[in-house]
Design a protein around this nucleic acid. Structure first.
Length: 497
RNA sequence: GGGUCGUUAGCUCAGUCGGUAGAGCAGUAGCCUUUUAAGCUAUUGGCCGCAGGUUCGAUUCCUGCACGACCCA
């Protein structure tokens, strides 16, 4: 593509011309003293006459987003991280060199402008330039000014261009930052300590998923990118850090779709001397705090075609009740593996007769119940067979003290009272090891050090993981996880220059 | 993994019932000192995703591949 693109070539030529004329290029000595957004909030309401009388003169810097030139004058829109402001350039107010430069500017160039504020005929706040400097020449043309960048593939691959022309992207990412900030605030207010545990694990554990494998050369050992921080966080509770949380990336070597990216952000937290019932209330409070802090109305949050009401208390739905009342299943289907299997197959689920009844019911739940859970709903009473890490219910040994939170049909969090019996944990590890030997790549490995930690004693503890990307999707009304991740994973294309 | 659709100028998109392509914006050359997608005149720009097949001839039809979007698993 070296010389093929004339648009780029033309801009390089302009840069060469500037250099020849002795102009400094890629200079960094222009120091702005104002931001466009601040100027708008300070002076938009002021009338033009008194604005000129006050003689407000500023230095701003930013990218040229619009360029309208006529003969001996013209307008530009200059954009910085706070917004855009119009700049008026006329021959009489600029030095000859600066006006020449102005006439050669392209949309996309990064410039510094020194000038004084006034209002145009139409009342728009504008800077009348008395000095213009080129800070960075943009060599590539920006997308079309009206439609912007529409191609989703290009938007994800060249997010920098997407950010320049589609303001909505930056707004979403700023909101993401505010959401995470609010979560952090809430946790700290509740006396949790933020920690960072290893991202590179010697053993796979803490969830059911295939890991990414990497290699440490000096030690000559394989390491796994973590699929969950769970086992390390619980070690900290053993050590007396009774309230800990971590907001960080997990990595799972799985397919990608609207709701899955191989690396994704989770908040996991653990609190000693509480059980899963505490987590239900705590989660409601957490969401209320976050929603308030970003200025949304908790009773009316738009997500796609759904309007979601986050008012407390949220619905609590027993797993089996859900299958009956929401899924419309008869008792005999729930108790009869043959019938459940037949129905699951009819629904196109990939199930087989080697699966347990509970596993098949989970598939039915996924197909028939989850899509109907629009307002926040805690599903509780999960069977032991599909909850390998959760503590058994004190009254009913067949179910666990576990819940999952669904909003708009999407699993947002998963939590439970932790298993702190080292004997039971050891057995479950051994069972996983067997599965792994049989070829189950998602089974965990035997973590002897974790067993040792449990033998020192893990207090009764409740723990939960919240999918941050999905929370951001819900609160920014995006149905694709790629729209809330700045650089989603994309396959390589070999036609890149 | 399966299905459907898409890939044409820097960008947004037309189009060719098979005869080597168009518009708008951007660019270039002019005119223009208050514009708001500025306007007016002229004009440059294409391996029509890649590879094969059918055909006198393929950007168009067929097959495969790559990448992407959506649906399903």
């Amino acid at each position: 593509m070296e010389e093929r693109n004339k648009l780029i070539q033309r801009r390089i030529e302009k840069l060469e011309e500037f250099k020849k004329q002795g102009m400094k290029i890629y200079r960094n000595d222009f120091l702005p003293d104002a931001f466009s957004g601040d100027l708008h909030s300070a002076y938009d309401d002021k009338d033009g006459e008194s604005l000129v009388k006050d003689n407000v003169c500023v230095k701003i810097a930013g990218r040229v987003m619009a360029y309208r030139s006529f003969g001996k004058a013209g307008f530009m829109k200059v954009k910085d991280f706070t917004g855009q402001i119009q700049v008026y350039a006329e021959k009489n107010s600029l030095s000859e060199e600066d006006f020449k430069l102005y006439k050669k500017l392209d949309v996309g160039d990064i410039i510094g402008v020194e000038g004084c504020l006034f209002k145009t005929k139409t009342g728009e706040l504008t800077i009348k330039a008395n000095k213009i400097v080129l800070l960075t020449k943009s060599l590539r043309p920006l997308p079309e000014k009206w439609h912007g960048l529409q191609d989703k593939e290009l938007r994800y691959r060249q997010r920098y261009v997407d950010l320049i022309v589609n303001d909505e992207v930056k707004e979403t990412m700023v909101k993401r930052s505010k959401i995470i900030n609010a979560i952090r605030e809430f946790m700290i207010k509740n006396r949790f300590v933020e920690v960072e545990t290893p991202m590179m694990h010697k053993l796979v554990g803490g969830a059911t998923a295939k890991p990414f494998v990497t290699h440490h050369n000096a030690l000559d050992i394989d390491l796994y990118l973590r699929i969950a921080p769970e086992l390390y966080l619980k070690r900290l509770v053993v050590g007396g850090m009774e309230r800990v949380f971590e907001i960080n990336r997990n990595f799972r070597n799985e397919g990608m779709d609207l709701k899955h990216n191989p690396e994704f952000t989770m908040m996991e937290f653990y609190v000693a001397y509480k059980n899963y019932l505490f987590l239900l209330d705590f989660t409601e409070e957490l969401f209320e705090y976050v929603i308030n802090s970003i200025g949304l109305d908790k009773t009316n949050i738009q997500f796609g075609d759904n309007t979601i009401d986050f008012s407390r208390p949220w619905k609590r739905l027993d797993f089996f009740e859900g299958l009956k009342d929401v899924g419309g299943l008869d008792d005999d289907v729930i108790k009869d593996k043959e019938k459940a299997l037949k129905l699951a197959l009819e629904l196109g689920k990939s199930v087989n007769k080697d699966m347990s009844l509970e596993k098949i019911l989970a598939e039915l739940f996924d197909a028939l119940v989850e899509p109907k859970l629009i307002n926040p709903t805690f599903v509780i009473g999960y069977p032991v067979a599909i909850s390998p890490l959760a503590r058994r219910d004190n009254d009913n040994p067949n179910i666990t003290e576990r819940f999952e939170l669904f909003i708009s049909g999407m699993e947002v969090s998963n939590g439970f009272s932790e298993l702190n019996d080292p004997f039971d944990q050891k057995e479950r590890f051994l069972k996983q090891l067997e599965d792994r030997k049989k070829g189950d790549e998602e089974a965990s490995m035997y973590d002897a050090d974790y067993i040792r930690a449990l033998e020192y004693g893990l207090p009764p503890t409740a723990g939960e993981g919240i999918g941050i990307d999905r929370v951001v999707m819900l609160l920014t009304n995006h149905d694709s996880i790629r729209d809330v991740i700045l650089f989603p994973l994309m396959k390589d294309r070999d036609d890149e220059e």
